[in-house]
Amino acid sequence: MPEAARPGSPLLAVRDLNGWYGESHVLHGVSFDVAEGEVVTLLGRNGAGKTTTLLAVMGMLARRTGSVIFAGKELIGLPARAIARMGIAIVPEERGIFASLSVEENLMLPPVVRPGGFSREQIFELFPNLRERLASQGTKLSGGEQQMLAIARILRTGARLLLLDEPTEGLAPVIVQQIGRTIERLKGEGFTIVLVEQNFRFAASLADRHYVVDQGRVVDTIPNADLERNMGKLHAYLGV
């Protein structure tokens, strides 16, 4: 979807977002919009501030300033638990599967915050492997299964904005394809998704728009339709 065709007010509007890890100032004024039902990616080199941007939106940074408007409400100043209750959920980069919990417990851990989440049956239809492994320890799953579990557990909650941090990192191509199909399906169901991704091909196959993040700022916006034309520029940004 080209940028001009987006409807009036975005579901998520980030303006001049600054964020800190302890003393170190990582985000220097990130701004971007995501409309309802869109999939956008944050692209950029390692250390550009993509993960930190997701953490800042989710309220998981100790210090952040600027503005994050979600569904018309300001999130700056709210704790992560309040932000989660408004319908935002995250799949962190390290996946965050709990070792002391079984797969079943991991799956059922996040409370349902809104109606309209996936049922267990829908989740098992999406990720049949998980049904077989319910009694296993969470971290005994393969990397791909852990990623599926990390996605599955937030689908139950009814969150409508999903923040996915490098869901394909370190996974085999066949698993990457399965996760790609899952994200497409979620998009089809009306979920809004912000995807941080190093796998550029993967991102291009799914996203409506790409935001290029560099040194803690969004430095460019590339609609997916214009991607081929902007390849040279993008390669320069990403340093590949």
């Binding site: 309220g59 998981m60 992560a80 638990r81 989660a84 995250i90 709990f98 919990l101 909650t157």
Partner: peptide
Amino acid sequence: RLGALLRAATENPALVGAFGINV
């Protein structure tokens, strides 16, 4: 379930908070 919350919060309180739990 309460115990699962407790064990999860022991491992990664930030993430449990990001699921909407009052850690």
